[in-house]
């Protein structure tokens, strides 16, 4: 099942990609997806992973909803979902 991953801002710079598709066999939690993403893109891990957890200025969205307002890292991703790694910003 395809999951669309988007990398924005500084995460885009770290991954070198705007978007990629990762294929999963079954639904998995975001925490497991992170392991796959970090393995593919170690620079992303260096960027968003800080001592004690994820840097709070880098937000993870599932279909446009911040996972903090879903089930955090336990939020499961399903067929066709879009997971976005969002960057700090100012506007």
């Amino acid at each position: 099942m395809p999951i669309r991953i988007r990398y924005l801002g500084l995460v885009y710079r770290a991954s070198g990609l705007y978007e990629e598709i990762i294929y999963l066999d079954t639904p998995i939690p975001i925490s497991a997806l992170l392991e796959i993403v970090f393995e593919r893109h170690p620079e992303v891990m260096k960027l968003i992973y800080v001592e004690g957890g994820l840097n709070p200025l880098y937000r993870i969205l599932l279909n446009g909803r911040d996972i903090e307002h879903l089930e955090g890292l336990n939020t499961k991703v399903y067929d066709g979902d879009v997971v976005t790694f969002s960057s700090p910003f100012g506007g």
């Binding site: 924005l8 969002s86 700090p88 910003f89 506007g91």
Partner: peptide, 21 residues
């Protein structure tokens, strides 16, 4: 980090972020 992001992409970094939301 926000200053670094503003340097890299300017305010236009918001296009994709706000669109995703």
């Amino acid at each position: 980090d926000i200053s670094k992001a503003l340097y890299q992409f300017g305010t236009a970094v918001l296009v994709n972020i706000i669109n995703e939301h």
